Measured scan of single mutants.
Amino acid sequence: MEVRTIKVFTTVDNINLHTQVVDMSMTYGQQFGPTYLDGADVTKIKPHNSHEGKTFYVLPNDDTLRVEAFEYYHTTDPSFLGRYMSALNHTKKWKYPQVNGLTSIKWADNNCYLATALLTLQQIELKFNPPALQDAYYRARAGEAANFCALILAYCNKTVGELGDVRETMSYLFQHANLDSCKRVLNVVCKTCGQQQTTLKGVEAVMYMGTLSYEQFKKGVQIPCTCGKQATKYLVQQESPFVMMSAPPAQYELKHGTFTCASEYTGNYQCGHYKHITSKETLYCIDGALLTKSSEYKGPITDVFYKENSYTTTIK
C-alpha cells in the first residue's frame, strides 16, 4: 500500500517557510505537534488534498525554529505562539472599519479597549522592536488589523473576551517599542525636605499616572512627601515624541487643539466601556464603527496623549 502524501510549508514567522512532505494517514499533531492554519487549530486533523502548498504555523520545537521565533517575536515564552494563534482565530472574524481616516474595530468580545489602543497607536510616533509587531502594525494602518490585535493580546497575556485596560495595554506595548531616546527629568520640591531631581528613561519617561493635564504637570502637581507634608512635583525636561497622561476616570474637559487623542471610560472596574476622542479640525468621538463630532467635550476621561518633541522648564 502506497503512502499518500502532500507537500506543505511549516513556519513560526510566515517569513521562513520549511518544506514538509506530510503523510495523509496521520494527523498534523502526530507529525508536527500543535499546528495552526489561519489561526485555526488543526492539530487533530489529517492532511487533505486542499492543504497542498498551504502554510501551517507550528510551535518552535527545534533550534532553527526557536531562533526564527525569537528573532521575529522577541520572546522565548513557549506558550506565546499558541496564544497568538488562538487569538487570531477570533480577531480574523472582527470587522476593521476605516473611521475618520483611522483603522478602528467594530465592537465584539469586549474589544473596546483594543480599538482605543489601536486608534491611539496610529496617532503617536512609535516604532516597535519585534519585527512581528512592526509588520502587523503597518498592515493594521492599511486596514488589516487582525494579526496586530492578536499579537497585542498575546504580548499582554490576554484572551479574547476578557476586559482590558488601555493604560495597561499601552504599557505592555511600550515595553516592546523603541523608547531608548526618551528621557524625563522631574523635580520634587518640599518646604521641609528641599528639592530632589529624578531622571527617568524609556517607558517611565512617557507615562504618568495622577493627572490628565500635561500643562498642569509642567506647572506642578501636589504629591505627598515622605515627611508627610505636601510637596510639588513638576516637569523639568521632556525628550520624547509623545507623552501619555493618565488618571482614574473623572469628568474632564478636553479643549480642541490642546491634545492629540484621549480615552474615555464609562462604567466601573468590573464592567465598563471605552471610547476614543481625537482632536482634528474639530473633536471626534470614535466608538467602534461609530463616529460623532463636537466642538467641545466633557466626560469621564482616563488617558490623554500629547505630541511632544523637546521641553525644558522655565521655572527657576
Rank of each mutant, 00 (worst) to 15 (best):
M209I: 09
Y73Q: 03
I105P: 03
L291H: 13
L17P: 03
T19Q: 15
N110Q: 10
L37E: 14
D303R: 02
Q237W: 14
V206W: 06
A142M: 14
G82S: 12
S294Y: 09
I223L: 08
F56L: 12
T199P: 05
K7C: 15
D23V: 11
G33F: 00
A231I: 04
N110M: 02
Y214N: 05
Y214E: 10
P47F: 02
T169Y: 00
V304G: 05
C227F: 03
L118E: 02
C271F: 14
T258D: 09
I15N: 15
T313F: 08
I15Y: 02
R4F: 09
Y252S: 07
T302S: 11
N61W: 13
F174Y: 06
P60T: 07
T226K: 14
A247E: 04
Y284F: 08
A69W: 04
G194V: 03
L173Q: 01
C149S: 04
K44L: 10
L102D: 01
F70A: 13
V12S: 12
E71L: 13
L290F: 11
G53W: 10
W94R: 00
P34N: 12
V236Q: 07
A140E: 04
A250R: 15
F174K: 01
N49F: 09
T103A: 01
V3G: 13
N178S: 14
I223C: 12
K280N: 10
F242A: 04
C156M: 14
I223D: 12
T35M: 11
L179R: 04
L153N: 00
Y138F: 11
D13S: 02
V3D: 06
W94E: 01
L212I: 08
K280I: 07
Q175T: 10
T43R: 12
K191Q: 11
N111W: 00
L126R: 01
L186Y: 12
G29K: 03
K201I: 11
H90D: 08
K54Q: 10
P97G: 14
F70K: 12
I301C: 06
N147I: 06
P300N: 15
L153S: 01
T43N: 06
G82P: 12
P224W: 10
E125W: 01
L121D: 02
L179N: 03
N157E: 07
K158H: 00
D63G: 06
C149V: 14
T314S: 14
Y137H: 07
K255Y: 08
A150M: 00
E52Q: 13
G82R: 06
L153W: 04
A205H: 01
A140P: 01
N178I: 04
R141V: 14
Y138P: 10
L200H: 11
Y28D: 00
V166S: 07
L133I: 04
K191W: 07
N89A: 09
Y214L: 14
T198V: 09
D77M: 03
L179S: 06
G143L: 00
D135A: 10
Y269V: 14
T116W: 01
Y155I: 04
M24K: 15
L235Q: 03
S79G: 14
V8Q: 02
E144S: 11
Q197E: 05
N89K: 12
L102H: 15
G210V: 06
T75I: 14
H273V: 05
T278P: 06
I152N: 01
D62S: 09
S86Y: 10
C112D: 15
N110T: 02
G39Q: 06
T75A: 06
C261G: 09
L254G: 04
T43M: 10
L81Q: 11
C193V: 01
S295R: 13
Y284H: 09
Y36P: 01
T211F: 11
C285I: 15
S294I: 13
K275Q: 00
A289N: 11
V3N: 14
Q31I: 07
A117S: 15
C149D: 00
N61F: 06
M244C: 08
V42F: 12
K183M: 07
A146K: 06
R184V: 12
I152P: 01
L186K: 05
V12L: 10
N178T: 08
A247D: 06
V42S: 05
E308R: 05
Q123A: 03
T64Y: 07
Y172V: 10
L126F: 13
H74E: 09
E204M: 09
K219H: 09
T55K: 09
L88K: 05
V22W: 01
S25Y: 11
T302L: 05
E239R: 11
V21R: 13
Q222L: 14
V58S: 05
T5P: 12
N129H: 09
G101T: 01
M24E: 15
L212A: 07
Q270D: 15
T314N: 13
L65K: 11
T103C: 07
R139Y: 09
N309G: 13
R83E: 00
Q98V: 09
I315S: 12
G257W: 02
A136D: 00
V236F: 09
V67C: 09
V206F: 05
L200K: 10
S171Y: 14
A154E: 00
L163K: 14
I152C: 07
K93Q: 15
T232N: 10
Y138L: 14
S25T: 12
G228S: 04
C193W: 00
R66I: 11
K316A: 15
C271M: 11
F242Y: 04
I301Y: 05
T314P: 08
L283H: 03
L186A: 08
S295Q: 14
L291K: 07
G202V: 04
M245K: 04
H276V: 01
